[in-house]
Amino acid sequence: MYLATTNIDWSVLAPIILPLIIIQIILMIIAFVSLYKAEATRGPKWVWALIILFVNILGSVAYFVIGRKDA
């Protein structure tokens, strides 16, 4: 609702925000690749997939620190 009433100038915003979003997506992809390749993880794989997907940066960090067995 607020988005509709306030006009956000995306042409100013995009060059600042986009790199941040791209780096976050790269981190997420690396975490997913590692999760896919891993033979076994601490805890079920699908839970880790959800954590990586929905917990922004710290989800991937938590997977790398806690989830990986060979870490």
């Binding site: 925000i17 991937s60 790398f64």
Partner: peptide, 25 residues
């Protein structure tokens, strides 16, 4: 490298470094 540390640690540092000025701005 095999445990992906060379990938995720720099990326997380970069994210936190970049996020601070952007959110203040």
């Amino acid at each position: 490298t095999r445990s992906y540390k060379w990938l995720w640690v720099p990326i997380v540092f970069l994210l936190y470094g970049v996020m601070q000025p952007i959110s203040m701005y």
